[in-house]
């Protein structure tokens, strides 16, 4: 369970203060499938970064379960990122000198896992994401869809409870984009909490709960399947 209370975040661009997030309140239950939509600059990526502990709020509290994670030390925050959160980027962010399987292995290396155990998990992930014949290729030898599948494998290999995806299909053609969405939805079906930022409405509408952000605020929070109760 994720809860954000009165989260604020502002940047200074030039001599102008930009409020990316204004008093965001949000509760997410385990296993939800949420899409965040909105125009550019509405703060949707900032919100996702905040949930992924990649960014720090200026004020407000952010809890995962009962733990206030904004107050954690660097080491404990790293632990949360490592074990509880998986993050998928629009630009994949694979390490270019490493092969696909080495990229997938990276979080486990950082966690200090035994090599034997790592190898087993990498093999499983490679199989599961249809990368068996590309495992020893470096990212520049992979297609966009394959790269994003490697990134998803890397994000989920530690079996996190929350999976965050920032425009995961933004750099892909529609076929491999659908492919990636199917994988993410399958993972959600297995119980992972999935939060996805997108500006593609047809993708956003697939989610069971849809947030629309404007100017740093959550403008709409709809759960289409359950009549049309706007709630917050």
């Amino acid at each position: 369970m994720i809860s954000l209370e009165k989260i604020c975040r502002s940047f200074t661009v030039g001599d102008e203060k930009v409020h990316a997030l204004r008093d965001i309140d949000l509760r997410v239950s385990d296993g939800e499938y949420i899409s965040i939509m909105g125009p550019s600059g509405s703060g949707k990526s900032t919100l996702l970064n905040m949930i992924g502990l990649l960014d720090r709020p200026d004020s407000g509290t952010y809890r995962i379960g009962d733990e206030d994670v904004t107050l954690l030390s660097d080491r404990r925050q790293a632990e949360v990122r490592c074990h509880r959160i998986g993050f998928i980027f629009q630009f994949f962010h694979l390490v270019s000198r490493m092969t696909a399987s080495e990229n997938i292995e990276l979080p486990m290396i950082l966690a200090g896992m035994e090599p034997k155990q790592r190898r087993g998990k990498v093999e499983e992930a490679v199989e599961a994401f249809g990368l068996a014949d590309r495992a020893s290729h470096r990212p520049d030898q992979l297609s966009g869809g394959q790269r994003q599948r490697v990134a998803i494998a890397r994000a989920t290999v530690m079996q996190p409870e929350i999976l965050l995806a920032d425009e995961p299909t933004g750099n892909l053609d529609s076929t491999s984009g659908m492919d990636v969405i199917n994988i993410l939805e399958r993972l959600n079906g297995d119980g992972i909490t999935l939060i996805m930022v997108t500006h593609d409405h047809s993708l956003g509408r697939r989610a069971t709960r849809q947030l629309t952000m404007v100017d740093g605020r959550i403008e709409r929070d709809t759960v289409p399947s359950l009549s049309s109760a706007p709630g917050s």
Binding site: R81, H83, P107, L110, R154
Partner: peptide, 14 residues
């Protein structure tokens, strides 16, 4: 790369 390592769960010390 350092940012990515942090996002993947590396501590500052690591």
């Amino acid at each position: 790369e350092i940012g990515l390592l942090k996002a993947l769960g590396a501590t500052r010390q690591q």
